[in-house]
Simulated assay, not measured.
Amino acid sequence: MNIFELLANDYTLRVVSLGSAMLGFVSGIVGSFAVLKKQGLLGDAVSHASLPGIAIMFILIQTKSTEIFMLGALIAGLLATALINVIVKYSRIKMDSAMALILSVFFGFGLVLLTYIQKIPNANQAGLEKFIFGQASTLLRRDIYLILVISILLISLIVIFWKEFKIVTFDADFADSIGISSKKISYILSSMIVLSIIIGLQSVGVILMSALLVAPGVAARQWTNKLSVMVILAGSFGAVSGLVGTLISSSMQKMPTGPSIVLVISLIVFISITMSPNRGILWRYVRQIKHQSDINEDQVLLNLYDLAMNHKNLYHSHDITAIKPMKTQGGKKLKHLKNILGNLQDKGLVKEEQIEAWAITEDGLSYIMKHPMRKEENDVTSN
């Protein structure tokens, strides 16, 4: 309740929370396409490449201006993206290697420029390094308006080019075959990624901005196979992480906002990877256990079927030691076999006519006849 009271009464906190939430929302939406196109490292390259653009703008104007710094970061980010595409097109260097190369070169150049700036006898350069790690508390109302305008622009472009983005993301060759230029669409998408990164530099910083771009899409992908749902989920995850991270930062002394936001979205990613019904590690493990249990039951039933086919009386009972769906040695495996037979009996597929003497039922024979693929699967598994 104290946090919500603080949010209601503290103007600065409301501004920072709103800005972070909007930033997380638009970053999640745009980043979804970067995740699907396997260009997550592009966000990292562009964010690091923006540092020299900020430094050069400060050297030129000798004063701190957020709008001018963002313009320099935008130019540097677009230049880095263009250089990556040129390297990939005219050399044998792969995309990931080209992005890593540009990232390191631009970021190193930016650090050199920052070191030079620190030696300039001008007090205005103090705090310029905050763009490396971010400082959301410095967000002003005009910064919120800038984030809002760029967010509306990016979302509008996604709505307008939704069909083109969707086709190029999943099958660029098919897009070219039906008259959609995959290169032009990719350039538009890359420029949108650059823009979304630039508006987040002040809040999250150069180093952590790529996490806010990629993580919401990764988390959303675990919950759905539909692009529209994934984009909405990614935006929601990004907005929640921005808001919650800001509130956590404000409630704890000397807790930076950018890292808090990244930690929140990282927690969302961890929960999604672990708990999502379709792709979650936990549920996948449960399904594997269930599938293995079904295979074991089918193996037992199939062996009883084979024993029945080799006997004049199809429903003649057989001693449990004759049923060998696996190398059943030892008390634990024998107990496991009895549990499987009990499950099959509950389903009406086998029956225990005498103590530890089991026979297949008419329903069991019908089940084998209706599931020939299961029979083949178990033949392979048994071997």
Results as ranks from 00 to 15, higher is better:
Asp10Met: 08
Thr12Pro: 04
Leu13Ala: 11
Gly24Glu: 04
Ser32Glu: 03
Ser32Ala: 11
Ala34Gln: 09
Ala45Val: 05
Ser47Val: 03
Ile54Leu: 15
Ile54Lys: 03
Ile59His: 01
Lys64Gly: 01
Ile68Glu: 09
Ala76Val: 06
Ala76Asn: 05
Leu78Pro: 00
Leu79Pro: 02
Ile84His: 03
Ile87Ser: 11
Lys89His: 08
Gly108Thr: 09
Ile120Asp: 10
Asn124His: 07
Leu128Lys: 04
Gln135Cys: 05
Leu140Trp: 02
Leu148Phe: 14
Ile160Glu: 07
Phe170Trp: 12
Ala175Met: 03
Gly179Ser: 13
Gly179Glu: 12
Tyr187Ile: 14
Ser190Leu: 13
Ile193Ala: 09
Val194Gly: 07
Ile207Val: 12
Ala211Ser: 15
Val218Met: 15
Thr224Phe: 14
Leu227Met: 10
Phe237Ile: 14
Gly238Arg: 00
Gly238Tyr: 00
Ala239Phe: 04
Ser241Asp: 06
Ser251Pro: 00
Lys254Gln: 13
Gly258Leu: 01
Ser266Asn: 07
Phe270Arg: 00
Ile273Met: 14
Thr274Val: 08
Met275Leu: 13
Arg284Pro: 00
Tyr285Thr: 11
Gln288Met: 14
His291Met: 09
Ile295Ala: 12
Asn303Trp: 15
Leu304Lys: 02
Tyr305His: 14
Leu307Tyr: 06
Ser317Thr: 11
Asp319Glu: 10
Ile320Glu: 07
Ile323Val: 12
Met326Ile: 15
Lys327Glu: 13
His336Tyr: 14
Asp346Phe: 11
Gly348Leu: 10
Lys351Val: 10
Ala357Tyr: 13
Ile360Tyr: 01
Thr361Val: 08
Gly364Thr: 02
His371Ser: 13
Val380Trp: 12
